[in-house]
Simulated scan of single mutants.
Amino acid sequence: MIIQVPALDDLPTLRAIERAAGEPFRALGMASVADDEPPSLAQLTEFQRAGRVLAAYEEPGPGGEGRRPVGYLLWEPVDGCTHIEQVSVHPDRAHRRIGRALIDRAMGVPPMPSRQWGKDGGPVPLTLTTFTEVPWNAPYYARIGFRILPEAELTPGLRAIRAHEAALGLDRWPRAAMRREPGWSG
């Protein structure tokens, strides 16, 4: 697997991955999540130009064929952390550690546009928000080193993200913010 910032030509495939990755939510009675529109090409282009999108690619075949994205991750700087805005893997490629590889790679990405690291010169924490009762969400993230943040530990940026999610109706199902510290190795 190859992980890199995708080319502009690959951005439509990321939207297709997002749509396919949303379908399993339908079986959990979360049709509105399954039907949620993926980021627009304009939004994905902004992430791509800022270097804040990673895509996982299949290894190319012997003749170079078959190289296409199978998963992706969007991130943004939030309160000195690398905040995972979205991580999606095509269901046809599930259970192959692609999501984890993307998340592990994001741990090594400086969170600030200036590409500065944390105060100690090394990686900074990862944060994300997720559904707590969806097996491939919070329980999965807990297995790869994330912990649920109690309300008292939410930063102003995470509070704003959670408020926005609530306004979108995502709090119809239990949600939480999670954090993974640098140095977690599993």
Rank of each mutant, 00 (worst) to 15 (best):
R159S: 00
S88V: 06
P135S: 08
R143M: 13
M107R: 02
Q116E: 12
A101I: 04
V33I: 15
A142R: 04
F146L: 00
R147Y: 10
E59Y: 02
A176Y: 09
G186K: 14
W173K: 08
R143N: 08
I103Y: 09
I84T: 13
P38K: 06
D171S: 07
Q48G: 03
N137I: 02
V89T: 15
G66Q: 09
E59K: 02
L170K: 14
P182N: 08
A163G: 04
M30P: 09
I144H: 01
V134L: 03
L102G: 12
R15M: 01
L170M: 15
P69D: 10
F47A: 14
A42W: 04
D92V: 05
S185E: 03
D35W: 05
L168S: 15
E58R: 04
G118M: 11
R159I: 04
G186F: 08
W184G: 07
L73T: 12
S40R: 11
L28F: 08
V33A: 13
G63A: 09
P111K: 01
F25I: 12
L170P: 08
V109N: 05
P6V: 03
R175H: 01
V53H: 12
A152T: 10
A7C: 04
A177L: 04
R68H: 07
T13C: 03
G22R: 03
A34Q: 14
F131H: 12
